[in-house]
Simulated scan of single mutants.
Amino acid sequence: MNYLLIKEIINLVEEFETETKNNPVFEASIHGFKSWISKNNNTIVTEPTWVGKETGRSAESYINTLIVHLNRYAKSYSKSAIIGSGFSTQEDFIYLINLKAFGEMSKIDLIKKNVHEKPVGMQIINRLISQGWIEQRNSKTDKRSKVISITKTGLQSLENIMDKIRQATTIVTGNLSQNEKMELIRLLDKLDNFHQNIYDKNIETENLLEEAFKNLNK
C-alpha cells in the first residue's frame, strides 16, 4: 500500500477543510473537493463534449452559441414576468434597478452601465420618462447636462413586479448547485471585465474587431 500517497491525500483534505471552513465556497462533499482541487490546479478535470466537436467545431464557437441561447432564454422568462405590468421589455426594469441601486446619474452613464448604444438607450430612457417612472433635472455640477433618477411611481412599479423578476432570475440559473453558481460567477466576471475594458474605449465599429482581438494577447 502506498502510504505516502494516502498521507498526501489526507493533507489535501485537511487543507480543503481549513480553507473552506470560514469561506464555504465549495460544499463539504467529494464534488466540492474535486472542484476545489480543479480550481487550485487551474486545470480541467475532464474535457466536456459539445455539439460539433467531433467535426472540428471549436470551444469558442460553442461558447458563443450557449451565451446567445442563454440570453434568449432569459429574455423569454423576463417577458413572462412583466406581462400586464406596463413594462415593455426587460431593459425597462433593468434601467430602473440600476437607478434604484446606484442613484441618480447622467443619461450616458446609465446607458453605458447597461452596455447599450446611445440611440437604443435613449429610447428606453424616453419611454421610462413618459411612463413617469424616472425624472430628469439639471445637474448640480454641470448646468449644461441633466441627470435622471427613479421616481416614487417608478419605485412602486418596480416593487410590484420584483417577485416575478426574482423568479425569472432564479429560473435562469436552472439546476446549478451553489458551488457551480459561484464558479460561473467567477468565469463570467472575468469575461465581462475583459469586454468591459474594450467597451469603455468607445472604439469605432469598423475598427472594433481588430482592436478587440489585440487584447487577447495582452
Rank of each mutant, 00 (worst) to 15 (best):
D92W: 04
I97H: 10
L110C: 00
A81R: 03
F87D: 08
L96R: 03
I108M: 06
T89L: 08
S88Y: 09
E91Y: 15
S85N: 13
G86K: 06
M105I: 05
A81K: 02
Y73V: 14
I97N: 11
G103R: 01
Y73P: 00
S78A: 15
S78N: 09
I97K: 14
E91Q: 13
E104V: 00
T89D: 08
I94F: 13
I94W: 11
S85K: 07
A74S: 11
I83E: 15
K75T: 12
L99C: 08
L110A: 01
S80C: 04
L99G: 06
A74N: 06
I94E: 15
S76Y: 12
F87N: 06
S76M: 07
S78V: 12
E104G: 08
S80Y: 04
T89C: 08
S76N: 12
K107N: 08
I82L: 04
K107V: 03
Y77A: 07
G86W: 04
G103I: 07
D109T: 02
G84S: 11
Y77Q: 14
S80K: 09
I111R: 00
K79S: 13
L99I: 04
K100F: 04
S78D: 08
K112F: 00
I83H: 07
F102V: 02
L99D: 01
S88E: 13
Y77C: 10
K107T: 04
D92L: 11
F93W: 15
K79G: 10
D109Y: 00
F93M: 11
A81I: 10
S85D: 08
I94H: 11
I83K: 13
Y95D: 04
G103F: 03
I94R: 15
F93E: 12
S80R: 09
M105N: 07
Y77G: 01
I108A: 07
A101F: 05
Q90W: 14
F102C: 05
I97E: 13
S85I: 08
E91M: 13
K79F: 10
G84A: 07
G86F: 09
A81V: 08
G86E: 12
K100W: 02
T89K: 05
T89G: 07
F93I: 12
L110M: 01
F87H: 07
F93Q: 09
S88M: 14
F87V: 13
K107H: 07
Y73W: 04
G84C: 06
S88L: 13
Y73C: 03
I111W: 00
F93S: 05
K75F: 07
I97S: 13
S106L: 02
Q90S: 15
I111N: 00
G84M: 04
I97G: 02
K79W: 05
F102G: 03
E104S: 15
S80F: 03
I83W: 01
F93T: 10
S88F: 10
Q90R: 14
K75L: 11
Q90D: 15
T89S: 15
K100V: 02
E104N: 12
E91L: 15
E104K: 15
T89H: 07
E91T: 12
I82M: 05
T89A: 10
K112W: 00
A101S: 12
I83A: 10
F87P: 06
M105R: 14
D109L: 01
K107W: 02
M105V: 06
G86H: 09
D92V: 13
